[in-house]
Design a protein around this nucleic acid. Structure first.
Lengths: 176, 176
DNA sequence: CATGATTTTCATAATATACTGAAAATTCAG
DNA sequence: CTGAATTTTCAGTATATTATGAAAATCATG
């Protein structure tokens, strides 16, 4: 056990709280606790980490660590890196907030917006020629939703394609 | 059983698919399937419905229908209405897409953004005076996240406060 | 206030999701 | 090749979430 002073105790505490709570928050965000915790851990880690280090730090099993590290890599929030002379895989997190935002936005669009849009488009399409007040009302409601979700989808693409500085300009103007 | 023609068959089919799939989508959005299905059902229902009608339509238990109707009312996505001469409670959904968006945005902000911001602010605060490269790096990363999430929080408020037509103007300009 | 209708609650059951740990597969150095 | 290190898979287990249904509470009406 390394000897520590009060300052590094505080840092350790703060880091641990950050990891623990970021994990809890992940649940709200629709990603599982472990995945969010690993993401937090790597995001604040000065160096890349191997699977065993992640396991030890978070007290989780190898399978769990492995699965969630791979999932994070699939999202693009974490990269695998090689350290020469070491056969193990190491992992490091994307730390740029704008980049993190874009990745999450992209994934959420894929999982939440696109399937909704597909459904709405299908329902609008297959009822557009039906007669009767009920059919008209259904088609109308579904079409309005479709239009809105379609707009959101395009906006999401546009914003994600922006440079951070430009997005910031717009945001600042909106808040000004 | 009411006699139907081909047209109302098609409508029924489309409505049923809409309800079923909107429920499945709800899962992705972090709300449970039944709640999303009830929301879908009421959103496309020409009339308000009572608990028993919802139960029958979705083939769910009374407790389930009750709990989720109340939850939808708590969100503000559904209103209770009284029908004179009828002791039962009836429910109708908010149908305006912009209003629906605002309600969902507000709730997501409350559940996803605000707790994250509180955590980030706390971590930034309690590490801002610590010495050492590690502490500096942690504080820096957390502060960047805090700034970004804080901005998102404010933006969310601003957009939700806009009139639909004004938000549409901005959106159109961004897409143009 | 008694009664029947309706709403609400909640213990239990069912389902869905996440985790473990060990075995199997892969990789790589010698 | 061989075998040790490492990654990957996955059946079984644990946990968390959601649904049921019946009992309790509430309410409205005569």
């Amino acid at each position: 056990m390394k000897i520590m002073n009060a300052s590094s105790d505080k840092l350790k505490e703060s880091k641990e709280e950050f990891i623990a709570q970021w994990g809890a928050l992940g649940t709200q965000w629709g990603i599982n606790r472990t995945m969010a915790q690993i993401h937090a851990l790597l995001m604040i880690s000065p160096q890349s980490m191997c699977t065993d280090e992640v396991m030890e730090e978070l007290e989780i099993s190898r399978g769990n660590a492995h699965t969630n590290l791979k999932e994070l890599v699939a999202w693009g929030l974490v990269r695998m890196v090689v350290i020469k002379g070491d056969r193990r895989d190491f992992y490091e997190a994307e730390k740029d907030v704008w980049q993190i935002f874009r990745i999450i936005a992209r994934e959420r669009k894929r999982r939440e917006i696109e399937p909704a849009l597909a459904l709405l488009t299908k329902c609008a399409e297959e009822t557009k020629n039906l007669k009767g007040d009920d059919a008209k009302a259904f088609h109308q409601q579904v079409s309005e939703l479709q239009e809105f979700v379609g707009l959101a989808s395009h906006l999401s693409d546009r914003v994600a394609a922006m440079k951070h500085s430009f997005a910031l300009q717009i945001a600042t103007k909106l808040l000004g």
